[in-house]
Design a protein around this nucleic acid. Structure first.
Lengths: 224, 224
DNA sequence: TCTGCCATACTTGTATGGTAGTATGGAAGT
DNA sequence: ACTTCCATACTACCATACAAGTATGGCAGA
């Protein structure tokens, strides 16, 4: 939201963004105990802006605030992950169908460029870069059909889903598979084959949580 | 979210819920100027919990905070309304398809009961009751297919959409039309006719913003 | 050794004073 | 009459002090 970006200089907003980045990147693993006091010391601000960021993060489901007891980075809820995937599937299928009807040429070019950068990151085995490019790829799709509000909603509810994707990409890439699907999507949009595009997208997003059970077994302390 | 319900006793949460109710019900019309000080006086609490609620409401897009200038109830953004409707259409179409595959009998009975109460409210010309029953009707649908997380996301993003629905139901009901569609939905679920159910849902949600231009012309000061 | 109590050190929740930035109205100057 | 400037009264933002609830470790007593 633009109205939030406007306050980007405020201490509270800086703490919020920093914490969110650290949580989603698993730099602060699920279950980590935080406290307003401790956090205020590390960021060299008072408790007020820290508390403000805690409230926002709790509303997004990234923090769990227990009154008078403490605050912890929320555990990943597998049911929520599946439901986030479900929502994202429905929305992205509809969006890529729109893209097949009409899509601006410059955005299509952006996607092509992104795809080339994906190949580079893949060769460098750069998981972090690959994750960001994947994110950007889908974002461009939403920009092209002018559904940024929808993209923002997805971003918010992807709190849990994104953490599992980070976990997954850090160990069992399947990057080639993802890359191939991205390329197929572009081709489908070009040829305006909506049914094909929808099918690819569905498989693409299904793949993204296919080994959730494996992750749950490997990192049991991260899950609910 | 349950973790937020747990703090329901806190002053900050009470202020938050009260303000949200007043905003969505248009008791606090779009554009209304608020201030931490003023609000703290009316609720007989300090500025801290008020500020906390402002932060949360701003994140939901219901308040617009301008640093060092003031806080206003956000205007209704027609583009956001349309996009919220778009999202809701995609999600509810998918959900009612699931319902057509399998749906628990007790939930179906709840929907039948709700439908009867809708008829009563319709005869009493009770718009507020009708709005709440409509809300509950769709909620039961999500409960039946166990997609409450999805329902909660819809509730959040419906901030703008709901205000237009309140505005609309207060003057040009079309209650009979809504009622008929609800009845058809139940029949479609019973007969497990997913394609029919999806079509009705699409029409149902399209209808819900069909006269947005009229509203925009009638209450121009409420829109962006 | 084990159990129960309690002081203590945490936690979040709330109130309040002060700071810096902004809008506004009136006075002074042209 | 019109413009410019400035005092004043706002605003949200931040720091800090206090209040109330909770976990914990040690000590006393059995």
């Amino acid at each position: 939201m633009d109205e939030i970006m406007l306050q980007s200089g405020s201490a509270g907003n800086i703490v919020y963004q920093q914490l969110k980045q650290q949580i989603v990147s698993l730099e602060l693993p699920p279950g980590t105990a935080l406290s307003e006091k401790e956090t205020s010391l590390t960021f060299h601000v008072s408790r007020t802006p820290v508390r403000e960021s805690f409230v926002r993060l709790a509303q997004e489901g990234l923090l769990l605030v227990l009154p008078q007891r403490g605050t912890r980075v929320s555990l990943i809820d597998p049911d929520m992950v599946e439901e986030a995937r479900f929502m994202r599937e429905q929305l992205e299928k509809a969006v890529i169908r729109l893209a097949c009807e009409s899509f601006p040429a410059d955005k299509l070019q952006e996607m092509e460029n992104n795809l080339m950068m994906q190949q580079e990151s893949m060769e460098r085995h750069d998981g972090k870069s690959m994750f960001e490019l994947d994110e950007a790829f889908h974002r461009i799709l939403f920009e092209g059909v002018r559904k940024m509000g929808t993209w923002n909603v997805i971003q918010q509810m992807n709190a849990h889903l994104n953490r599992t994707r980070v976990l997954w990409l850090s160990q069992d890439p399947h990057w080639g598979h993802l890359f191939g699907q991205h390329r197929e999507m572009i081709q489908a949009i070009r040829s305006q084959n909506a049914d094909l595009a929808e099918r690819i997208m569905k498989e693409h997003l299904t793949l993204s949580i296919s080994n959730l059970p494996v992750l749950k077994q490997r990192y049991p302390e991260y899950f609910k």
